[in-house]
Structure formats: structure tokens, C-alpha cells
Design a binder for these strands. Sequence first.
DNA 1: TACGTTAATGTAAACGGTTACATTTATAAT
DNA 2: ATTATAAATGTAACCGTTTACATTAACGTA
Lengths: 333, 333
Amino acid sequence: MATIRDVARLAGVSVATVSRVINQKDSVNPETAGQVLKAVEQLQYEPNAVARGLAGKKMGIIALILPDILNPFFPALARGVEDVAHKKGLTVILGNSDDLGLKESSYIKVLKKKYVDGFIIASNTIREEDVESLRKEGIPIVLLDRGLNTTACPVIRSNNREGAKLAAHHLLGQGCQRIAHIYGPQEFITARERLLGYEEVVQGSKGYSPSLMEPGHFDIDSGRKAVEQLFARHPNIDGIFAGNDLMAIGALKALRERGIQVPEQVKVCGFDGIGLTEITEPELTTVAQPIYEMGRLAAQILLDEIESGISGNSLIELDVTLIPRKSTMKEES
Amino acid sequence: MATIRDVARLAGVSVATVSRVINQKDSVNPETAGQVLKAVEQLQYEPNAVARGLAGKKMGIIALILPDILNPFFPALARGVEDVAHKKGLTVILGNSDDLGLKESSYIKVLKKKYVDGFIIASNTIREEDVESLRKEGIPIVLLDRGLNTTACPVIRSNNREGAKLAAHHLLGQGCQRIAHIYGPQEFITARERLLGYEEVVQGSKGYSPSLMEPGHFDIDSGRKAVEQLFARHPNIDGIFAGNDLMAIGALKALRERGIQVPEQVKVCGFDGIGLTEITEPELTTVAQPIYEMGRLAAQILLDEIESGISGNSLIELDVTLIPRKSTMKEES
DNA sequence: TACGTTAATGTAAACGGTTACATTTATAAT
DNA sequence: ATTATAAATGTAACCGTTTACATTAACGTA
């Protein structure tokens, strides 16, 4: 591999001049620039990213830390991030945190040493101190979902409360009287908001009871188990709003096992809008988050901060969309 | 951030000595080492990865290039790679190639400049020349699936032919007489092998006809369309072996639309063993590849090559497992 | 004519490590 | 006692850029 010195030598100029024409900085005589470019061409010179990184403290890498790429919610997010990064010539380092604060901290520590340009963290367990320390060092960071009190950096999330209300209203509109809610871990702000939205809508209705709410862990199995619990208490449930799609799928499975017809006897609505919802039987009604778009947006905001050096702290709540499908269909009357 | 020179100063030794104790290279007096370690501790010194990278031409990063993380096959692969990498203190850069040779080449070019330690490429379109050029520069690379003639580097894949035979035999065993096959793009070696395995088993049987084979693109929609084609030609098909799970899911959908019962009238078997197969109705019989394990193995082999500097060219074919589920269940007699 | 500006370029010091080579001292072998 | 060998450490070059600062030449202006 040719180095900048090789180019300088061949073009008969100093390395500084070569650097200038490569980066289009400062003024350089067009004629000289021509020589340099010719030499670059001739030697097939490509600047070394690591040397650049060392000098400039930026490796052209953005770090994406998420709980688990195996969770079907995250691939779309990752793809959104990667697509905009790639368009701008940056690459993406992927880290799975398993929602372990410690693992996140350790990633941050390691990646800081690699001079990543910035962080996108999709996490519910990220620690304030970590965010602070990054800010202090001038490393941009964008958060997904988290960040209630954090005014320290941009936060992107969906409008979870509105989404939950959408779901609850939809179920009511489809004729449900006793709507249960399987809620996610309450340390996740998303899960809390969805629960609140549900309560807000359902509280007034006649069938309401706090015992219609059952916790789950945002995975298929806990959705299934929650249904067992719920039906033990309330055999007459006719609608289920699950805090996410995975739990809704679990619910679907449990209902089928019990021989309960969906949507005839019980209607089910999920949350997230992951691809899986299209392949269940019946297809699953869900409140779709613009997942890919969230990834794109996070990356765009991050790149803006990286380029401008200005750090914002906006809280962006994206709109969600109810996608009605067979699992909540009202029988034709 | 403290630098190695700060540590050297505080410990009253030269930077070389500090480097030695940090990297446990060469011999250094235990007492001196103690001083250094104390200084390291006191200054909270952490070696800068970029400077290291520049000096050693290795950034502690492995590049994982795959077609599309949105394809449900790949997250498990990525997770396998990442888990191994993380355990060894390396990080993973993720690139989506969309099976575009050009995008792959461009990634390789960019990442070489970033001194990644090695590449894991899951691709059907990777070009020989790219592999060659990496080898020539001593950058380890491990391929997934591809690499028929390529003896130039390790290749990991599943035993696709055996898997297909497993599937075909299973369908025969379940009483199918006319087994169709929806095969994937023939430029993919995996798809070719699966087709061959299918033919090998089915060729002799009475119901066999070349028109029982229909192409697809490894996605849900093409699976659905293939079923339309197949049933137009052969209304009496009673078994379908899809070249991958996505097409099998499409087939399931198409069959349901036509009012054909699975497994009573037609049995369906997929290939890959992605998570989706557990949530279809009926649950999908599939030939499972050890996807996560493939990722792990690829990473392990790559790391071995990185550490040892020795480059192998083994071809590893992992065993697949037939997972019988409801979609191929024989009615109780 | 002398001088402040600006454009064009070069020099060399960062950036923060690793490592080949040199030097000194202690130890073992002859 | 002498010399070869190994252990412990230091010096400085090197990895390949960027960039602050210095230098020179050309130009417009008072």
C-alpha cells in the first residue's frame, strides 16, 4: 500500500500538500493539485483510516449497542442505522448488551478506546453516568427509548402511550368488553407507557378490573403463561392487548391450546409491528412502530452531531400506526 | 486520558518498559513491573486501541459481511460471531451486502483501510479476486456457504445435500407420494445442493416428475407463488419440500388460501430452522442448520488464524437436523 | 519605495503506541 | 581471570496521517 509520502515524493511536493489536496483544505495551486492527483491515481493511493483516526480521534465508526440482535425488533433498527452510516461512508460496530448495564459499560469503555465517532444505544439499562461521561468527552450519543430525565442527549422513541390507547380503542371498537393487558417489565419506560395508555382508555369502561393486567417479559413464553393466569381469573376475557408482539404471539399460542378461537371468542392485539405478525395464524393486529425509520433517524441525528460538533438534547416521539388484521376482526354482521 | 508516556514518567521508567509489562512481552524485573502497574492503576491508564492498531496493523475488529440482517437467518449467525468475538475482547463491524458483489468489494476495501483483523463473509456473491487479494495481504478470511473451488480459505457450511435427503425421506416416510420442491436461486450453492439431494431421493419413486420442481427466491412471497404454479400443474401434490423456511412459510400461506389442509392434504417441510418455524400454524417441520453454531465456529476459526498467523483452507460441513413438527404429521391411524 | 496581505508550500511536531537495536549488568562456563 | 550469554532496560525509529507554524513569493496600496 502506498503511503502519503510515496505520493508526495512522486508528485514532488510535501506530505502537507498532499494532505491538503486529499482533504480539500486550505488553498493549493490547481496545477500542483493536478500533479498530486495524478500521483494518487498512479499509486492507487488510499489514505489509511487508522492513521487518520489516530490524528483526528475519529475512526469513521459508529457504535450501535442494542440488547440482542436475536430479538426480532432489532434487525430493522440495525439496518436503518447501517444504511445511513454506509451512505455517509461510515461503518457500524454492533454490540449485544443483553440489557446488562455492565456489558454496556464495558462496550462503551472498549469502543471509546477505538475512537468511535459516536454511539447509538438502544437500551433500557444504560446508566446515566455512562451518558454523562461520553458527553463530557465530547463523544456524541443518541438514545433509543430510554431517557426520561436525561436531557443530556437526543432521545428517540415511539409514542408508546398513544399507541396503547390506539390499541385499546381499537379493541373496544371491535366489540370487546373485557380487555386484558399483558404488560412488559416495568423498569422499561416503553412498557410503563403502554400500560398507562391502556389504563387510561379502559379504566372508565364497565368491564374494567386491575386483575385484568398481567406481567410478562416481552417474550413469547411469558405471553403464553400470562394468558393462563388471566383466564384462570377471568374466563370471560374477550380481548387481549399485549405489550409487545412476542407476548401477543405467545398469547395466540396459549389460546389455540385452550381451543379458544381468535378472533371470534377473543381478539388479540400486539405492539411493535415486527415481521412475525404477518405470518401468524390469524395474522396479528399490531401497533406498528417505524422501527427501520427509528434507526435511520438515530443515525442521522448522530451524524449531524458528529459533523457539526453541536450536541442537542431533543426528545423525539415518533408516531405509531395501528395495523388492523385478522386477529381482531369483528365477525361480519 | 493518560498516555503510556505519562505512565513511564510516573513509574520512572521508559515507555518501552511500560509497553513490556502491559503486553507481558520480553522479560522485565518483577519489582519494576510492580512500579509500572502501580502507575497504571494510579493514572487509570488504558492503552489506546487506535495507536496500537496503527503500530500493529490490527484494530481488534472483525468484519462480518452478510447479505441482510433483516433476513431472519442472519441474526443468529451474527450473534454467534459476536459472542465469540466479545469473549476475546474483539468487536464486530457489521455490513449488509444485499448480495451485491460490488457492495461487498466496497466494504472490503473500506475495512482493509481500517485494519480489521479479519473477515467473515456470508455471501453467495463474493468474488474470488476479493478473497485472493485478502489472502495475499495476509488478512484472514472465513467464508460461509460459498467456496466450491476456493481452496484459498476456510469455508463453513451445512451439509445441505444430506439435509435435503433427510427432508425428502421424511416426507416419503410420512406417506407422501408426489413431493414437490421449491428450489432457491441456483447461483447459490446451498440451493443447488438441496435440489440435488431432493432429486437423489425422489428420482426413483413413482410419483417423480421434473415438473414438480419450481424455482423461488428464498423469500416468503416467491414460496407462495411457487405453490400456485405447482398446483396448476399438479393438483395432486401431497408434499412440499421448500428450499428454505421462508419459502415454506409462503407455501403454507398459499395452501391456506386455497383451503388445502396442512398436514392432512399436503405436508410441508422447510430448511434452515429459523425461529419463525415455531410460530406458524401448523408449526413447520424443518431441516435445522446450527446457525448460531456456524457463527461461533466461523469466529473461532478466524480468531485462530488471526492469533496464529497460519491460514488454513479447511472445508467444514456441519450436520443438520430434521425437526419434525405438525406440518408433516401423519394422521393417527 | 516600503509594507501589510494573501496565496502556496514546506517543516516538523503531534497523535499514542510497538519494537529493533543498543547498552549495561549479572551469571555461568572455560 | 576471561569471555560468552542472558536478563533488564533505554533510545529512537516507525506506523501514516493531520496541522500549527514558518517561509517565500506575489500583489495591492500608501
